[in-house]
Deep mutational scan, measured.
Amino acid sequence: MAEAPPRRLGLGPPPGDAPRAELVALTAVQSEQGEAGGGGSPRRLGLLGSPLPPGAPLPGPGSGSGSACGQRSSAAHKRYRRLQNWVYNVLERPRGWAFVYHVFIFLLVFSCLVLSVLSTIQEHQELANECLLILEFVMIVVFGLEYIVRVWSAGCCCRYRGWQGRFRFARKPFCVIDFIVFVASVAVIAAGTQGNIFATSALRSMRFLQILRMVRMDRRGGTWKLLGSVVYAHSKELITAWYIGFLVLIFASFLVYLAEKDANSDFSSYADSLWWGTITLTTIGYGDKTPHTWLGRVLAAGFALLGISFFALPAGILGSGFALKVQEQHRQKHFEKRRMPAANLIQAAWRLYSTDMSRAYLTATWYYYDSILPSFRELALLFEHVQRARNGGLRPLEVRRAPVPDGAPSRYPPVATCHRPGSTSFCPGESSRMGIKDRIRMGSSQRRTGPSKQHLAPPTMPTSPSSEQVGEATSPTKVQKSWSFNDRTRFRASLRLKPRTSAEDAPSEEVA
C-alpha cells in the first residue's frame, strides 16, 4: 500500500521540484479525499487562508506561464504608474523644462484676455472677434484635454484613487474654476456660431469669465498662502490700524457733515460726507466734493493729517511682513540645501571615528588635552595620597570615625582645627580638600554678606603664586578674593596644593 505523501509545513519547496517556489498556508490543510486516503489533490490556500480556484496559477517567480503573465502585467503596471506620476508632476508640480508648457498656457490665456479687451473697442471689434473665435476653439481643445489628463493623473495619489477620489480631486477650487471656464468657452462658441440675436450679448458677457483663467496660473496657491501667512502673522497690528482709521473716518465725516450741510449742497446727507471722507483719507482725492466753510476746511485738514497716518499703516505693516517672510523662506531654502550635506558629513565622520582606533588626527579633542595637561583624576589621586601619608595610611573619614581611648597616647600629631565659614567644625583632613566650587561659593557668600568690609582692609600687593609662602596660607580663606572669576591669580592660587600645619609646630611643606 502506497504511503501518503508527508504533510509539508512552511514555505519550503517540495523535494524533486527545486526551481518551484510555492506559497503554502501556515497550517497544512488537505482535502477530505486526501485525509481519507483517496487520490485527491490537496486544496490550495492563499496567504489569508482563502481557498484558491482550481485553475488559478500559483503565485511565485517560477510558476510557469502564469508567472510570465504576472511579470508582464507587473511591468506594465509599473510603467503605467510611472507615467501617471510623471504627468501629475508636470501639471501640478512643474520643475525644470516642465515650465515651458505652463508658459505656453499663460501666453494663450493672456492673448485671449487681450483680444477680449480689444473686442470692446469699436475700431478693432470685428478683427478681434474673428481672432478670438479661432483662439477659443484652440483653448477649448487644449483645456478640455488638460482637464481630463489632470483628473486621470491624480490617481497617482492615494487620496485621489478610484471614482470617489477623482470626484474629490474635481471638487478642488482650481478644478472648479477650470470647469466653469470650459463651460463658458463652449457656451460662447455655441452662441457665436448660431448667428442669432443673442450671440452678441452672450459673447460680450461670458467672454470675461475667461479672466478666471489668470487665476489658474498659480494652481498651488503659493501667492495666496504667502499673503495669508503675512496677514495672520500681523493680524493684531492690522486690526488696530484699521480700527483707529475707521473711527477717524466716521468722526471726521460726521463733523464735516454738521459744518457743511447748510452751506454746501455736496454734503446734503451723511452718506455724501462718508464718501468724501473715504476718498480723502485714502489719499485718492477725486475733487467732486470739497468743503466751502472755514470750519469745514479746518476739520477736514486736521482729520486728514490724523487719519492718513492710520490708513497708511497697513501698507507699511504688510510690506515689512512680506520682507520678513521672504527672508525666512530664503533662510529655509539654505537650511534645506545644507541639511543633507551636513548629515552626510556627520555620518562619514562617525564611520571614520568608529573604524580608526588610533585617531591620531583628533588634535583638538579632550583626549588630546588630557594627555598634555594633568587630568583631574590625577589631581584627586594626588590629594588622596598626600592625605593618607599624613594620616598614617588612613583616609580622612576613617580618621574622624576612629575612637580614641581616654589616657591613651595619640598616634597622630595634634592638628589645628579649622572652621569653614557658615558651618560647624569639620575634620581637619578636609581643609585642604576644598575644591574650586567651594572656594568660589565661599567668595560669593563673603561678597553678599559684607562687601563694604573688603574695601576697608589695607590693599594687598598682588604677587605671583611662585613667590607666595606656603606656610602662610594655612586656610583657603587666605586666598585673595576677587569680584570676578576671570582673575588668573585667584584661579592659579585655588589650584595650588595647600599643606596642613599642626598647632604646635607648623613646618612648611611643599608638595611638588
Rank of each mutant, 00 (worst) to 15 (best):
F246C: 03
Y101C: 01
Q84L: 13
E260K: 03
M217R: 00
E92G: 04
T280I: 11
T293K: 14
A323P: 14
P314S: 06
F267I: 13
V109D: 01
A170P: 05
A343D: 15
E260Q: 00
A241V: 03
T283N: 04
V230A: 13
L47F: 12
Q332L: 06
V298G: 15
R331P: 11
N344I: 10
P51T: 01
T282A: 09
V109G: 03
Y243F: 00
E237A: 09
D266V: 15
N264H: 06
V149D: 13
L249F: 03
F267V: 07
H334L: 03
V151D: 13
L226R: 03
F322Y: 03
Y257C: 02
I197N: 07
G285S: 11
S269P: 05
W276C: 02
F322I: 00
L108R: 06
H234L: 00
L227R: 14
G307S: 08
R166G: 12
I250T: 11
W242R: 13
R297G: 00
V138E: 12
A343P: 13
A300V: 01
G165V: 06
K337M: 06
G307V: 10
S50C: 13
I105R: 00
K337Q: 13
G64R: 04
W163S: 01
A304V: 10
T240N: 02
W276S: 09
K236M: 00
G316C: 11
D272G: 14
Y270H: 03
I244N: 09
H102R: 12
L324R: 15
G307R: 03
F169L: 04
K333Q: 00
E92A: 14
E146A: 04
P314R: 08
A241P: 00
A342E: 09
P173H: 05
E336A: 02
L281S: 03
D288N: 12
G162R: 12
W152C: 02
G144R: 02
R331G: 03
A312D: 07
D266H: 05
V90L: 09
A271D: 01
D218V: 10
A271P: 00
G316D: 14
A342S: 07
P173R: 04
A190P: 05
F179I: 07
D266A: 05
H234P: 01
E328A: 03
R297S: 09
Y286F: 10
I279M: 13
V215E: 01
S320Y: 15
L227M: 11
A259G: 06
D262A: 04
K261Q: 13
P94T: 00
V176F: 08
G321V: 12
F322C: 00
G287S: 05
I284L: 10
Y160H: 08
R338W: 01
L91P: 09
T293I: 15
R204H: 04
F303L: 07
F198S: 03
H330Y: 05
I284M: 10
R207C: 11
A301D: 08
L299R: 08
L107S: 03
R95L: 10
G277W: 12
S273W: 11
D288A: 13
F311V: 07
G165R: 10
K337T: 08
A154P: 15
W275C: 03
W224R: 00
K325Q: 15
V231D: 13
A170D: 00
T293A: 10
G319D: 15
F254L: 15
L83R: 15
H234D: 01
R338Q: 12
R150G: 09
K289E: 12
L238Q: 00
F246L: 07
Y270N: 12
Y286H: 00
L118P: 13
T283I: 14
K325R: 15
A312T: 15
I244S: 02
M1K: 04
G34V: 10
T282K: 09
R297W: 02
R168P: 07
C112W: 13
S268F: 04
Y286S: 04
I284T: 02
F311C: 15
G321R: 15
R204L: 08
F169I: 03
K289R: 03
W275L: 07
L255Q: 07
Q84H: 01
L249H: 12
S309F: 03
P341R: 15
Y80N: 11
G296C: 14
E136K: 00
A315V: 08
H234Y: 11
S119C: 13
I284S: 14
E260V: 14
T278K: 09
L324Q: 15
K337R: 06
V230M: 00
P94A: 10
L83Q: 15
Y270S: 03
C175W: 02
V248G: 03
V100D: 09
F251V: 09
T282I: 03
T280A: 02
F303Y: 01
E237Q: 07
D272V: 13
A191T: 00
H334P: 12
A199P: 02
E123K: 06
M214K: 01
T283P: 08
T293R: 04
L258P: 06
V231A: 01
T278R: 13
T280P: 06
V141E: 10
S320C: 10
G319R: 15
S235I: 03
Q84K: 03
I250S: 13
Q332H: 02
S273P: 04
I279L: 04
L313R: 14
N264S: 14
W152S: 09
A304P: 03
P94H: 04
Y88S: 13
K325N: 01
G316R: 04
S309T: 14
R207G: 12
G165S: 01
G302R: 03
R207L: 14
G222A: 03
G277R: 02
L9R: 05
D218A: 02
I317M: 11
L91Q: 02
V256D: 08
V248E: 07
V231G: 00
K337N: 02
G287D: 08
K289N: 05
V87D: 01
S269A: 03
E237K: 13
I317S: 15
A271V: 06
I279N: 12
I211F: 03
Y257N: 10
F303V: 05
F179Y: 01
G192V: 07
F246Y: 06
E336Q: 15
R338P: 07
G245R: 14
T283A: 05
V326A: 13
L306Q: 12
S309Y: 05
M206R: 12
R216P: 11
T293S: 04
S269Y: 09
R220L: 07
N264K: 07
V181E: 13
L226P: 11
E146Q: 00
R82L: 10
L238R: 15
Q84P: 10
K333T: 02
I317L: 13
G307A: 04
Y147S: 10
L238P: 15
T280K: 13
R339S: 02
A323V: 15
F303I: 04
L212P: 00
G155V: 05
R331L: 09
A312V: 11
L318R: 11
L247Q: 15
L318V: 14
F169C: 15
S111R: 13
I148N: 06
G319V: 15
P291L: 05
F322S: 00
I250N: 03
A323D: 15
D288G: 04
L249R: 10
T240I: 00
P13R: 13
V117E: 10
L247R: 03
E336K: 08
G165A: 04
A304D: 05
V186E: 03
S229P: 05
P94L: 10
D218H: 00
Y101N: 03
N264Y: 13
F198C: 02
F322V: 00
Y88C: 06
G96C: 09
P341A: 11
W276R: 14
F335S: 01
N196I: 00
F311S: 04
S253Y: 01
E260D: 05
F169V: 08
L91R: 11
H334D: 04
F335C: 14
G162V: 02
H102D: 09
L238V: 01
E237G: 01
L255R: 00
S205R: 12
G285C: 09
V109A: 08
H334Q: 10
N264D: 09
